[in-house]
Design a protein around this nucleic acid. Structure first.
Length: 424
RNA sequence: GGAGAGAUGGCCGAGCUGGCUGAAGGCGCUCGCCUGCUAAGCGAGUGUGGGGUGAAAAUUCCACCGAGGGUUCGAAUCCCUCUCUCUCCGCCA
């Protein structure tokens, strides 16, 4: 959420920023309500002031045994008036809030302009695209023939877009989770967290999934609870309504969680394989940073995520999301895309964003600056470090052999009991 | 699921027979003093959000004692609903 004062004072700037995202909001209603809000507020505060003063008078008179009835009767009217104005004020504020809460974040100045994902510039490419002397197979073909992936049976258990791993496949998921968490906690300084996988409505609002994107979420029937679409939600909300100690910043968490997404609106896309599932595993990195350093922290976070792909020796590229492709809450986002040989494309495997104070304002996460009065909102950042299912898919495709076997990346072998190759 | 207790400022903790209590006291923190060093000691200050005036420093007003309603001229204090925490019983991996 943007600050109401900021929107009020920078109306055209906000409008312009939104249009670069291909978004708009009802600024006319905002302007009207905002102006009316302040008029009403002024009157309410005057009346309340009067009530406070007179109430004190009444108290004094009663103490002295005098009759205060005239004042009491007068105050009865004042209170009624306050009550009526209060009601109109809160309706007004609700209208304003409904507009504000649907306005996305303003892109950072360094974010490239562009209308959609076709205009995301490549920042860098690392590793040579894997080449084969045979026609490479898709990971689902390999996975099924190796007996480690079974989408048919998964659909019996639940339905389409759910994964079922066996043997070395299941082991590889577990190995990757441990591999990633170990690197981030021991080499990059993140604290490991294991959060709830189900969260309440407020947490979803705080990180920006609600109210706009309810259709992307799985909701629990009979509860106002939701399955998490990413660990970003529970982990960012760890510190909601807290004033953090400046000395502790940046706070860095690494969390493994499964993620649940309805994938509404993606019908027909990536219908096969591990790329687009309703349930997948992910290791997520989350930071709470000082505003002055948050963009440095974003670069570091991106490097931390890249380390995983480097160690696994998977070719990848970094793109910077353009204004039109930026997520709702993000001020800037880098995507990491891994090379998928069968389709011959780079596919998203991590998304690293700086949300600046957008989430912190909703979640009320602040810190106190040394030697300065008052509090300041922290900047929140997060990034996948990295998506586990897609990493399995990338390993299968990039490490496949002519005979249909798959070599296990060296860095991962110790996590898989020394196994070097997966054969049927 | 049943019975009971509780939720107060960065933290701990009074107040809860309604009226200078934004809130005692303590800790912490900041500044100053003192002191061979450290520790201790002394003094002052120290919540958040919003509105008005002001160039600013500042000043003033309003709100906030888990959340939301209600009673009242007036609510941290009384009533209702909800959320969470704790204790006992039941159930349970």
């Amino acid at each position: 959420m943007l600050e109401i004062k900021f929107v009020r004072q920078n109306l055209s700037k906000v409008q312009k920023a939104l249009s670069t995202r291909g978004e708009t909001a009802d600024f006319e209603t905002f302007k009207d309500c905002d102006a009316r809000r302040r008029t009403v507020l002024l009157e309410i505060e005057e009346l309340r002031h009067r009530r406070n003063v007179v109430s004190e008078q009444i108290a004094g008179m009663k103490k002295e045994g005098k009759d205060a009835n005239i004042l009491v009767v007068e105050m009865r009217d004042v209170s009624a008036r306050i009550k009526a104005l209060d009601k109109s004020l809160s309706e007004n504020e609700e209208t304003i809030n409904n507009i504000l809460i649907r306005i996305p974040n303003i892109p950072h100045a360094s974010v490239p302009a562009g209308k959609d994902d076709s205009e995301n510039p490549i920042v860098r490419q690392i590793g040579k695209r894997t080449e084969f002397e045979f026609v490479p197979k898709a990971h689902w073909t390999l996975g099924e023939s190796l007996g480690i992936l079974d989408f048919d049976r998964a659909s019996k258990i639940t339905g389409a877009r759910f994964p079922l791993y066996f043997g070395a496949g299941a082991r590889m998921e577990r190995a990757l989770i441990n591999f990633m968490l170990d690197i981030h906690t021991t080499e990059h300084g993140y604290k490991e967290v294991l959060p709830p996988f189900i969260v309440n409505r407020q947490s979803m609002i705080n990180t920006g999934q609600l109210p706009k994107f309810a259709e992307d979420l799985f909701k629990l029937e009979g509860w106002d609870y939701f399955m998490i679409p990413t660990a970003e939600v529970p982990v960012t909300n760890i510190h909601q309504n807290e004033i953090l100690n400046e000395d502790l910043l940046p706070i860095m968490y690494a969390a493994y969680t499964p993620c649940f997404r309805s994938e509404a609106g993606s019908y027909g896309k990536d219908t096969r394989g591990l790329i687009r599932q309703h349930q997948f595993n992910k290791v997520e990195l989350v930071k709470f940073a000082r505003p002055e350093t948050s963009y440095d922290e974003l670069e570091k976070l991106l490097n931390n995520a890249e380390t995983i792909l480097k160690r696994l020796e998977l070719p990848y590229q970094i793109i910077s999301l353009c204004t039109g492709d930026l997520g709702f809450s993000a001020a800037k986002t880098y995507d990491i895309e891994v090379w998928m040989p069968e389709q011959g494309v780079y596919r998203e495997i991590s998304s690293c964003s700086n949300f600046e104070s957008f989430q912190a304002r909703r979640a009320n996460i602040r810190f106190r600056k040394k030697g300065k009065k008052g509090t300041e909102l922290v900047h929140t950042l997060n990034g996948s470090g990295i998506a586990v299912g897609r990493t399995v898919a990338a390993i299968l495709e990039n490490y496949q052999q002519a005979d249909g076997s798959v070599i296990i990346p060296e860095a991962l072998r110790s996590y898989m009991g020394g196994k070097e190759v997966i054969r049927p």
